[in-house]
Amino acid sequence: MYKNWWKILGAILVVYSTIWGFLSAVPALPILHESIRNLYFHVPMWFGMIVLFSISVFYSVKYLSSNDPEHDIKAVESINVGVVYGVLGIVTGAIWARFTWGQAWSFDVKQNFAAIALLLYFAYLVLRNAIDEEQKRAKISAIYNIFAFPIMVVLLFVLPRLADSLHPGNGGNPGFNAYDLDSRMRMVFYPACLGWILIGCWIYNVRFRVRKLEKNNTI
């Protein structure tokens, strides 16, 4: 039980933030209104994705230094879960944009760069499936992943700040923490971020263990 404390914590935080995210009071802000509750779901997806991609690049580096196939499995499985988080981040963002910007996809600079960043990792998965030889696939994938990660960071956090954007925190628009993320929302937002990150790591850990069992059974 003591080894699984973080899984239990993640589940509790997600349940808490989901229930309280719908029931708790939020600031009465123009344009956003009740849609601001999406902050508890949209942003944690991106934080979870970034953590999972960070784990993947860590194990890609470890694979290149050790040639341990388990490190390759950990890298790809963390990306598999991270991509799901990224898709959920784009979907929840599009839903939010529909109610605040008037349309789900307005080709805002932040939306475009987020989509391109996610496509980088779809390309990683396509690349892996295109190479049959196991060691060659693992090595090329690891190299690709190491270069893809800093590009993803630039696309999400650097380039959008250089252009005008409707997205909070970009193009001169203030971020939520600057004007409307009050103490009530922080009590839900921070647990939501931590909870979804822990759940993502839990799913990644389960997928790794399943892949490891499948690999052992085929030997």
Rank of each mutant, 00 (worst) to 15 (best):
L198R: 08
E214A: 12
N170C: 09
L155H: 02
K110W: 04
A94Y: 05
F147L: 15
I203E: 03
Y85N: 15
I143N: 08
F122P: 05
V14Y: 04
L118H: 01
H33W: 08
F122H: 02
G169K: 00
Q103F: 08
V83I: 15
S165L: 04
Y179C: 13
I151L: 14
L162M: 12
Y204F: 09
A75W: 03
D68H: 06
A115C: 10
R128N: 06
G175M: 08
D68K: 08
K212M: 14
Y2F: 14
W105T: 05
V158N: 04
S106L: 12
F99L: 12
L125E: 06
Y2P: 06
F157M: 01
A178Q: 15
K212Y: 12
W20L: 11
F147R: 12
A104Y: 09
S141W: 04
V81Q: 11
I151N: 07
I146V: 11
L166K: 11
I55W: 14
S35R: 12
N205W: 10
M185G: 06
W96N: 03
I95Q: 04
R128P: 07
A163V: 11
F47M: 12
R186F: 05
S60I: 02
A114G: 01
W196S: 13
I197K: 02
M187D: 03
M187H: 04
A25D: 14
I79L: 14
V14C: 11
F47P: 02
A94L: 08
F53W: 12
V83F: 14
W202N: 07
L29E: 07
I50W: 00
G93V: 13
R207S: 08
F53E: 07
N38Y: 15
W105H: 06
W96H: 04
M152T: 13
F58Y: 13
F107E: 03
V43W: 06
V15I: 15
E70L: 02
S66R: 06
I79C: 10
W46E: 03
I12Q: 05
V109W: 07
F176E: 03
V109L: 13
W6C: 10
V87E: 08
V158D: 02
S183K: 08
V210K: 11
A130R: 07
F157Y: 01
V76Q: 10
W101I: 01
P30C: 10
L29Y: 01
F189E: 08
V154N: 03
V206R: 11
A11L: 07
T92M: 08
V206W: 11
Q111F: 00
V153E: 10
Y40P: 03
V210I: 15
L181Y: 06
N38F: 15
Q111G: 04
V57Y: 00
L194S: 12
I143Y: 10
F122D: 05
V206C: 06
L120T: 01
Y144R: 04
V76H: 08
F157N: 04
P160S: 04
F149E: 13
I36E: 08
A28I: 02
I116K: 06
R161K: 09
L29I: 06
Y204S: 11
N38C: 14
